[in-house]
Write a protein that binds this DNA or RNA. Sequence first.
DNA 1: CCAAAAGTGTTCAGCTTACACCCATGA
DNA 2: TCATGGGTGTAAGCTGAACACTTTTGG
Lengths: 229, 229
Amino acid sequence: MTDFYSINSKFYLAVDCIIFGFSEGELKVLLIKRNLEPAFGDWSLVGGFLKQDETLDQAAKRILFNLTGLDHVFMEQLHSFSQIDRDPGERVISVAYYALMKTSDYDKKLVTKHNAHWIKLEEIPKLIFDHNEILETALMKLRRKSGTQPIGFELLPKEFTLPQLQELYEAIFQKKFDKRNFRKKILTAGFLKNLEIKDKSNSRKGAYLYKFDSKKYNALVKKGYNFSV
Amino acid sequence: MTDFYSINSKFYLAVDCIIFGFSEGELKVLLIKRNLEPAFGDWSLVGGFLKQDETLDQAAKRILFNLTGLDHVFMEQLHSFSQIDRDPGERVISVAYYALMKTSDYDKKLVTKHNAHWIKLEEIPKLIFDHNEILETALMKLRRKSGTQPIGFELLPKEFTLPQLQELYEAIFQKKFDKRNFRKKILTAGFLKNLEIKDKSNSRKGAYLYKFDSKKYNALVKKGYNFSV
DNA sequence: CCAAAAGTGTTCAGCTTACACCCATGA
DNA sequence: TCATGGGTGTAAGCTGAACACTTTTGG
């Protein structure tokens, strides 16, 4: 029985995570400056190896949790990378995941311990192996997906203002939107709830805080609605 | 050096292919009725194991070529499936690929030898392992992607008629389109070339043959065009 | 001459885009 | 009172959806 399998090769499986965040009006990625071999001192994505008793999804969750202390983060499988020499040490297949998180609530001690840093998209350094390519793939996916599904909200705090939301979409798509049109589209869609509280941290006048109402959104989707910016 | 890696586990990596075709107005999938162990007699996707000296893309190409004798088929990585017991014999991670091909030009001897059959979407049998789930994922991807990129043309012969094209999109999206609106949208897009030849195999009047002009299409895409039905 | 499929235009509604000024407030 | 960011409406153009009849031709 096992013979059928054992004529085949086995491979190391890495899980690498592209962790996106948004703060100070900028899209950022959580990157590691490695403090262990191999490639000591080089920059890389957050990653680890798949274990026998876990699925890829579980491995990705474990890796994210170990670094940030966060559970229940938006996370999705991206693509598997298998260039033969992508890791010069050994043949390793990497399954990439991307995550969207709120930069406010993660465990800073853990992140410091792993020597991880939030790096702006425009300031991404050379990463080890094919990690720059993986990151590029993730970014394309984020753009494509943000255009049709409201995943952007995963990057904002639970309560956010419309100017913040617009800033986020402008960071994702790298272009400016018209304030009035943007608000109109978002608000007429009907899945944002105005909390009637003003956030004055950014202006004297203050901007209303809103909350994403996923129940209303899901009801819309069932009726055939498709979010797009 | 190798120590760093060797504390980790290795895994079998399968590559499973969902091969879509279109004929007689129906979307079909090429499935294998297994004539070898394990699971003799059961239905499955086309698949194989990754080898040491090839990438996943190469493995997928090899598997497709061995079955159909075709090279240069549209093919894309879909997703990796890693449920621990998905294959009850051994732990196997499966990387799925989907392919779109013209059902006209494949090597029928090879296909017969592997006991493969074109099965209509509505008549998919119970498949081994999680292959039904994989197929379902592929179908969703095909629908999503056909909505924004002209991949449907991969399923038609090089020269095709507009009624054929419409039939294809109706099969993919499982709904009828208005003939006039469909033609208008496709033709005004400008990447179809009328060959001024009529195909009379389907009607006395005959329908004009068209060709997909990928140069024109790529030029459009560069200008920001986005295909959608 | 007729059955069967191919081909063809117009109208209306809703959506997207472009565009400029007033509002509220703390310092 | 003023500087700063937040908030608001309307008109024009474009796109998507609905809808029915004529054309061609082999048998």
